[in-house]
Computed example of a mutant assay.
Amino acid sequence: MNTGNDDYSHLKEEIISSERVFDGKVIKVDHSTVQLPDGGSASREIVYHRGAVSLVAVAGDEMYFVRQYRVATDDFLLEIPAGKIEVGEAPDETAEKELKEEIGGVAESLRKIHGFYVSPGFSNEYVHLYEADNMTIDKQALDDDEFLDIVKIRLSELPAQLDNGAFQDAKTVIGVQYVIAKYNL
């Protein structure tokens, strides 16, 4: 129902109680009880994450991706360069670092083009999507626990690759759609 204004307080849930059930290196998980707008209550499992960055990296007529194995999906995914934001790090710092680490990219400038929640039904993970402007490629600087291949795809092939299901994670689909629109592909 559209109320005609920006007051959505009638939809807000209030956390009544919360118990930390997992406190890991990347995520924290709380089991919470919330009071619903109608006065009832419900259980919520909430995953807390520091957030991440992802990068649209185009050089010449090619877009850069990485292929890596993801244990959670038990699959080799083709993704745009990305990484989690470390404690004390600003998203633009993470973007610059991840571009260099994953594909050896060095950009004249990085520009934030979007931001989005990955799965807001249970997680607060927010991804900052950047575009690397005037990028050159140098040497990768992977972390010790990172194993990935660099994959370059011609811009003209992106629409067909998207249609064929080559990209299966949200950040990559969003990044590819951005490039398709930007370059009128």
Score class of each variant (00 low, 15 high):
F65S: 09
F65Q: 06
F65W: 09
V66Y: 02
V66L: 11
V66P: 03
V66W: 01
R67Y: 09
R67I: 08
Q68A: 11
Q68S: 11
Y69T: 02
Y69E: 01
V71H: 15
V71W: 11
V71N: 15
V71C: 09
A72Q: 13
A72M: 11
T73I: 03
T73E: 12
D74C: 08
D74N: 14
D74V: 08
D74K: 14
D75R: 07
F76G: 00
F76P: 01
F76R: 14
F76W: 13
F76Y: 13
L77K: 07
L77Q: 10
L77T: 09
L78T: 14
L78P: 05
L78C: 10
I80C: 15
P81M: 14
P81Q: 11
P81S: 10
A82V: 02
A82K: 05
A82F: 06
A82Y: 01
G83P: 01
G83H: 07
G83M: 07
G83F: 08
G83T: 11
K84T: 12
K84M: 13
K84V: 07
K84E: 14
K84Y: 14
I85L: 02
I85K: 06
I85E: 04
E86G: 07
E86Q: 11
E86K: 11
E86F: 06
E86R: 10
E86H: 06
G88V: 13
G88T: 08
G88S: 09
E89Q: 13
E89K: 06
A90C: 00
A90G: 00
A90F: 03
A90T: 03
A90S: 07
P91G: 11
P91Q: 10
D92M: 07
D92Y: 09
D92N: 10
D92L: 04
D92K: 12
D92E: 14
E93Q: 15
E93D: 09
E93F: 01
T94S: 15
T94I: 01
T94W: 02
A95M: 00
A95P: 00
A95N: 03
A95E: 02
A95T: 02
A95H: 01
E96Y: 01
K97Y: 04
K97C: 02
K97R: 13
K97T: 08
E98H: 02
E98T: 00
L99R: 09
L99E: 09
L99F: 01
L99K: 07
L99A: 12
L99N: 05
L99Q: 07
K100I: 04
K100W: 04
E101F: 06
E101C: 08
E101M: 09
E101T: 05
E102F: 07
G104L: 15
V106F: 10
V106D: 11
A107G: 03
A107E: 04
E108G: 08
E108M: 08
E108I: 04
S109Y: 03
L110H: 02
L110F: 06
L110C: 04
L110P: 00
R111W: 02
R111N: 05
R111V: 12
K112V: 01
K112H: 03
I113E: 05
I113T: 00
I113L: 02
